[in-house]
Every structure is written in structure tokens, then in C-alpha cells.
Write a protein that binds this DNA or RNA. Structure first.
Lengths: 345, 345
DNA sequence: CTGAAAGCGCTAACAT
DNA sequence: ATGTTAGCGCTTTCAG
């Protein structure tokens, strides 16, 4: 075995190569390659001998070398915000499923909503020569991707549009969804409605806020600036915002929560109050049915699947102008959004 | 541009290489390599020229070639059951975080609880020459991994032990957790307690069932076989199992749910009944606090982090005998588990 | 049906 | 400080 311990590092990853298999099977290198890749033109007998050598040696083709030669890696990269967020799990899974159908693997990365980290991940993926990229943007300037896209890396943005670059994008109808949700509250008789959303640099946050304003304007309702709060979706901030909006006799009688994180905290805050306050949240949540939470639902899995399908269409050579797909949202009435305002409000 | 359209396929991925950069900067290939990798021994002036060429050409190092030479890919593979399951998102994220600290990327795959698919994913990861592997086993025979492990692929199993192979494993204390949960119900006065769990081929399911039996035995309680049901965690099956256990005057007065999927359905079933039934579930769930669900909580993120740290310790050359880490669970009382049995039971 | 030779883009080892 | 050469393990090309 260790006949010649010359190598400074024994390279414990000293795996057998096609050359080794060829030597053992007494055939040429190319024949092994043919067998491994199921190419035609090998005698059953030769094939058997090669297979035996493969088994005996525990050979496994080195895809790095293969990639180097072929140019394609059969892998795609997905950069999202946080895999631990229940919104992104299903999205990622849907992307994986489509990738699998196309024989590709998925490399995942969480940007933690940090533009630098997004870029770092994207470029690392590009260095690995992923065939395509699905990005949920954290930053607002994606010009750094230009050379990559020019070099042929298919790219699709999801959930939020790319900044300063023209590329495919798949979105949920944040504007329309929020507008419908707020209109629903107005239809219950509410006139003082609060909006708590994510940081204003996040596209969906401002779109949903736009929807809120549109619905209020549609109904001819005034918006007090104290009713609107954008910022971190951390529990402390959301709790403070909600309590401030609800305070006093002229406090809001209904809340619109800008995303699932906000909804969760809002539910906790409202659960502790005697007077019922109406609530509609953007994004569905597990067990929201049992808690009776009315939501504007968007389908994360469909978002992911749509993006992935678009990506693979590009990889298959479709060369249309960048698409902008907007997926509809659905209002699901479960009770919390159907609470009327107090009679004395 | 297209001065010479000789190539049959224009290979739109015709990216610049170090050679191109070298030519443009008027330096040798190795100098470019030095600059790209931040190695010492380059004049500031030379470095600047190289950097300019890199910018101008949009060069990005091809890590496939690098990997081929260096032997390590700085990537690890994670095979889990389903990324869309709220239990695995945080686990995956924790693994990613540790990988990131070690400069490695994470490749994800969902086995969908299918042993063949697990193997397929694992072997695909190995072909990509991941440095290490974290596997949540779907199958019960992992001998197919022997050549890989022998070849130096560090491997850690999580959530369930590997089958027929000796390797590191990180588990939650399923047995102890279930035993404590059931003991808690017994302490409330329950004597007829049902157990609904996952398929018996899943290790955690049988371990939790063992815990159930242990707690019952500890209290000298008889177990009616009609009180135990293992199988799919799909809502229909769980609902049927729960309703059958609850039926009749001698039905169970309390339920122990074997995992988060089961708990969710159990909560829905119990919500529709007039007589209160106690419930303790294994795994915490978002919003369980608002719903007052008592659970045995296990920490998915810690599970993932522990496994990843173990993996990287192996990659750093630590060569101890395989470890078996068992993480404790915590009983969180929220109300549903503190309901006493009806007085007439 | 089979194999030898070239080369994918990079890094290691050795010049200069 | 910089360049040259060889070769990682595979696929491609072309010759037997």
C-alpha cells in the first residue's frame, strides 16, 4: 500500500481515478470513461470487466474535472435571506425540486439581508461556475452581476426586483395584496388603520405600504403619519410600534401587518388587549387557521418554482427579453380581519 | 468580436482565464495567480496592472480548476428530509453558518424520506467532492458510504443514527423527551394516554414510542394497543388515529404527539371537541405559545450547529473514535399538557 | 469497438 | 520579484 511515502501530505483523499480503473481492468482510459458515462460502443464483456474494477476500487467520477472540461456544472445557486424563515424553506424546496428535474444540484446561501453578504455569496457561486443563479436581493444595486450575466450565467430575481440591472424577476403582487387587505378592513368599517412593515429599503415593504395608501385613498380616508411604521421586524420594534398606534382614544382600530414576522408579533400584542382590534397580515402562517388570523396569502413554493422554471428555460437557450412575472395573492378570511371597529370609535 | 467563429458551439460561457489576464497585463500566468490569491511577492505596480486587467476583462477565478488542483472543494453537503419542514430550515441555516465560518459553501438536498434518493444525493455530493457530509438518514443501511468515508469524506449523521456503519452522530434525546412528556401527562392524573407517531422505520419515532412505554411502565400503567399508532404524518392518517383513540367512554384522555406534523393535526382535531383532551407534542411550533400547546422542545439549530462543528473538527484532522452526542430536550408547559382528565374518566 | 494524445484553468514546484 | 513547466482527472478528437 504505502510503497512510496514521498508525498509530503499523504492526501487522504487519494481516490482512484479512471486511469487506475483502466489499469486494473486492462483497458484504455477512454473505455472507462465510456462505461462510466453509459456511452455506446463497449462490448458487454469489456463493460463487465470495467464495472468490476470500479466496484473493487470504489471509484467515483470526479465531477470537478468533468466540469472543467465540459463547461457546465449542472448546479444552480440560490441566495435568499434566511433559510430559517418559514417563508424561504418552501421556496428553496420548490427550487430544488425543479433543479432535480433538470439534473442539477442546488447550492444555498443566506444573505441575512446584508447586501455585502449577498454579493459575496453570488460571486462565490459564480466562481464555482454555477449554471444559473436565483437571487432574492438584499441589496439594491446588482451591477456587479453584469460581467457574470454577460458570461452566460442565467439569473432570475425573486420576491424583489433587481437594482440597476435588467433581468428576469418573479414577484408576488405586494401592492395589490396590501391594497386588498386594507380595503377589506375598510369594508368592515375601519377608518383608522395602522401599517407596520419591514425596512423601507426592502422593496416589498414599500410596495405594501403603497398598497395601504392606495386603499386608504380609494376610500377617501386620511392617513395619520403616526399610523405608519417601517423598520426592523424584530419583536421589540414591532411591539412598540403596535402599542403606540393603538394607544389613546384616537388610536387605530385595525392593523395591517406587512409580513409574517410582523403578524406573529402583532397577534401576540393583540392577544393581550381587552378591546378587540382587527388584524390582517401579509403572508400566511402555520396554524393561522386555528388562531383565526386573516391573511393575504402568497405562495412561496410557486414563487420558487416559477423562478426556477424560468431559469431553466434560459439555460435551455430561450433568449427573450427579461420577463417580469407577478403572482397574485389571495385574501383568506379567518376572523381577525372581520372584526368591526368599536361602536364608540 | 466574432473574429473567428470556428468553434462549433460559441460557448457563451467563454470567460477570460488567468492566461488572458496575464496577456493583457503583460505579465506571467503565475503572477496573476499570485494577485488573485493575495500571495506575497508582487510589486504594487505589477499588482495594479493585473488588477486593472482583471477588472477590464471581468475575470473571475474558476474554482473548478482550482479544486482539481488543490483536492479540497471548501464545500459540504447536507442531506435532509425536506427543507420546507419548519424543523429543517433552522437546522440547515445553522449548518450554513458554521460552514461560512470555515469558508465553506453548503449544498443542500431533500431526500423526501426516500432512501434511494438519499443515496443518490449523497453520491452526487461525493462526485462533486464535497469535503464533508451531514446526513439526516432516510434509509437504514449506509454501507454504501464506506468507500467514501475511507476516501476521506468526513461524515456526520444528525437526528437519527446511521445504519450498519460506524460514524459520528448527533441526536436529540427522543427517548428521554417522550418519557418526560408522557410522565408529565401521567402526573396530571391521566391514565389512558394515546401516542401518535411517525413511521416505525424512522428511528426517532420508535425511540419516542419507547419513551412512552417507559413512562407508562414507570407509573405501572397498562398500555392498550389501540392507544398507539405509528404511520404517515399526513393529516388524514393522524386525524383518523386521533379520533379512533378518543372515541367511546374508554377513549384516551390525553395524547402525546410524536412530532411537529402530528401536533399540528392533533391541535386541529382537539379544537373541534367539546370535552378537553390533554396534549403534549414533541418539537416546538411557531405560535404554540399563543395556542397554549405544551411541548417537548428540541433545538434544531443546536442540532445543526453541533453536527457542523463536529464535521469541521474532523476536517481539521481530529481523528477520534466516532462520537455520539445526545442533546437534551426541554418540557415547555403552556396549558394543553396541564389539563386534568375528566372527573368521570 | 478501442485507445492515445491534447487540453480544460488552475496551482505546486522549481527556475530565473 | 517573476516566469516556466508539469499535471490535477476528466472529455474531446482523431487514429487505429
Amino acid at each position: 500500500m504505502a510503497e512510496n511515502a514521498r508525498h509530503p501530505e499523504p492526501r487522504y483523499g487519494n481516490r482512484p481515478t479512471m486511469k487506475d480503473v483502466a489499469a486494473r481492468a486492462g483497458v484504455g482510459l477512454k473505455t472507462v470513461s465510456r462505461v462510466v458515462n453509459g456511452e455506446a460502443g463497449v462490448t458487454p464483456d469489456t463493460e463487465r470487466r470495467v464495472q468490476e474494477a470500479i466496484e473493487a476500487l470504489g471509484f467515483r467520477r470526479n465531477d470537478s474535472a468533468r466540469v472543467l472540461r465540459k463547461g457546465r456544472t449542472a448546479s444552480i445557486g440560490l441566495v435568499l435571506e434566511d433559510l430559517a424563515d418559514p417563508f424561504y424553506g418552501p421556496l428553496s424546496r420548490a427550487v430544488e425540486e425543479v433543479a432535480r428535474e433538470h439534473g442539477a444540484l442546488l447550492i444555498n446561501g443566506s444573505s441575512a439581508e446584508d447586501p455585502d453578504r449577498e454579493q459575496e455569496l453570488v460571486l462565490a457561486f459564480c466562481a464555482r461556475r454555477v449554471d444559473g443563479l436565483i437571487v432574492i436581493p438584499a441589496g439594491s444595486d446588482h451591477r456587479y452581476l453584469e460581467p457574470e450575466i454577460k458570461a452566460g450565467v442565467a439569473t432570475v430575481f425573486v420576491d424583489r426586483p433587481a437594482g440597476r440591472i435588467d433581468a428576469d424577476v418573479v414577484l408576488s403582487d405586494s401592492f395589490g395584496g396590501a391594497r386588498a387587505g386594507v380595503a377589506h378592513l375598510i369594508a368592515q368599517g375601519h377608518r383608522r388603520i395602522g401599517f407596520i412593515g419591514d425596512q423601507p429599503r426592502i422593496h416589498t415593504a414599500t410596495e405594501r405600504l403603497r398598497g395601504y395608501h392606495a386603499a386608504m385613498a380609494d376610500a377617501g380616508l386620511r392617513v395619520d403619519e403616526a399610523w405608519v411604521s417601517l423598520g426592523s421586524t424584530g419583536p421589540e420594534r414591532v411591539r412598540a410600534a403596535a402599542e403606540s398606534m393603538l394607544a389613546g382614544p384616537a388610536g387605530v382600530t385595525a392593523l395591517f401587518a406587512g409580513n409574517n414576522r410582523v403578524t406573529v408579533t402583532a397577534v401576540r400584542v393583540l392577544a393581550g388587549r381587552e378591546r378587540p382590534v382587527a388584524l390582517v397580515g401579509f403572508d400566511d402562517i402555520e396554524l393561522a387557521d386555528l388562531l383565526g388570523i386573516t391573511v393575504i396569502s402568497q405562495d412561496a413554493a410557486t414563487l420558487g418554482r416559477t423562478a426556477a422554471e424560468l431559469l431553466f428555460r434560459r439555460l435551455d437557450g430561450v433568449d427573450e427579453t427579461p420577463a417580469r412575472v407577478v403572482l397574485p395573492t389571495v385574501l383568506i378570511e379567518r376572523g381577525s380581519g372581520e372584526v368591526p371597529p368599536p361602536v364608540d370609535a
